[in-house]
């Protein structure tokens, strides 16, 4: 969280102290982050972590109750129409009219953003070409595959050249090849200077982003590049499955002075050099240990370490 403290000159989206309540339930409890131009920013969180609420607030679909959202220099709370010009949105549930063709859908989007005539033609041709949709442009959207539909959505979202592209769970319902295609397209847009913010509950997807913010219970519990976040976890993660977890935990604490984290029937340890620790573990636990695994830290480990809970998407 080094660069987020000072707003950068290329900062496209700034979120400060954002709170949101549904009646008595607090969905967001003070969220802060920045998204820079050219950056892919992933909001990772299990269901119910508040990321959908955050997404809707960023989209201007929900009114801001407390806190501040600034996008492209405009404040969401007071200038939502200006903010809407700055953002392109790809919703999780498709926003295409299935009875219309790809071309007609994009023309619809154009009309909503005041783009028509020759300008619409030019931008549409370029986007369809770029997203490899040119040969499907006269097809009705109801006959397109999930991956193609998502790409048409992307074309719609990009038509007015937003500074911030918002994607809600972009990979949901796509097969691996289509996911890869989508990511190539998203990366190309980020390389072109667009700030991309996406929500996801997929760890491997968040791993591809430039920056990941992990959400849990309405708060950001970690924020940094995937590499930074993993480095915080040390060199590796040791996972011990024991016969009696409570007893095993006690043994590790008393005899080795370690402080393992207990998760269901597992004990987890962060270590700089896990391999050197293993012999001591085997000696101490003896028959008590069923298995001892060493792994490189993943974003899931970061989540578990910060929340003490399993990441259930």
């Amino acid at each position: 969280m080094t660069e987020s403290d000072q707003p950068h000159c290329d900062t496209v989206c700034t979120v400060r102290e954002l709170h949101h309540d549904y009646g008595d339930n607090a969905a967001l409890r003070g969220v802060d982050f920045d998204v820079l131009a050219g950056q892919i920013f992933a909001l990772l969180g299990p269901n119910g972590s508040g990321k959908t609420t955050l997404f809707r607030l960023l989209c201007t679909l929900l009114p801001i109750q407390r806190g501040e959202v600034r996008i492209g220099g405009f404040e969401s709370g007071t200038q939502p129409l200006h903010v809407r010009e700055q953002i392109g949105i790809v919703f999780q549930s498709p926003s295409l009219d299935k009875k219309l063709t790809v071309d007609e859908n994009i023309a619809c989007q154009g009309a909503l953003y005041g783009i028509h005539g020759g300008e619409l033609q030019r931008r549409r041709d370029a986007l369809l070409e770029q997203l490899d949709l040119t040969d499907r442009r006269h097809d009705r959207c109801e006959v397109l595959s999930g991956g193609l539909k998502r790409r048409v959505e992307l074309a719609k979202g990009m038509l007015h050249r937003p500074r911030l592209l918002l994607l809600d769970e972009p990979s949901t319902g796509l097969d691996p090849a289509a996911r890869l295609n989508l990511w190539t397209a998203i990366r190309a847009m980020a390389d072109d200077g667009i700030a991309v913010l996406l929500t996801t509950h997929l760890l491997e997807e968040a791993d591809k982003a430039d920056r990941v913010a992990i959400m849990s219970q309405g708060k950001l519990i970690a924020d940094g590049s995937p590499h930074e976040l993993r480095s915080e976890m040390g060199g590796g993660i040791i996972t011990i499955v024991a016969n009696d977890v409570v007893r095993a935990e006690q043994m590790l604490r008393d005899q080795l002075g370690l402080s393992p984290q207990r998760l269901h029937h597992q004990l987890r340890l962060q270590a700089e050099s896990p391999a050197t620790l293993v012999p001591a573990l085997i000696e101490t636990l003896g028959e008590e240990a069923q298995s001892i695994n060493i792994g490189r830290p993943s974003l899931e480990d970061v989540f578990i370490a910060k929340t003490g809970q399993a990441f259930v998407a």
């Binding site: 492209g72 220099g73 129409l81 200006h82 809407r84 010009e85 700055q86 931008r123 370029a126 070409e129 770029q130 997203l131 490899d132 007015h160 050249r161 937003p162 500074r163 295609n181 190539t184 397209a185 990366r187 190309a188 847009m189 072109d192 200077g193 667009i194």
Partner: peptide
């Protein structure tokens, strides 16, 4: 699918900031 990585036209962020939607 190589065509996905074709260069995009340069963006013009200043365009949208100029005209007031209202």
């Amino acid at each position: 699918m190589n065509s996905l990585s074709k260069p995009i036209e340069k963006q013009h962020p200043e365009r949208s900031a100029m005209t007031a939607p209202a």
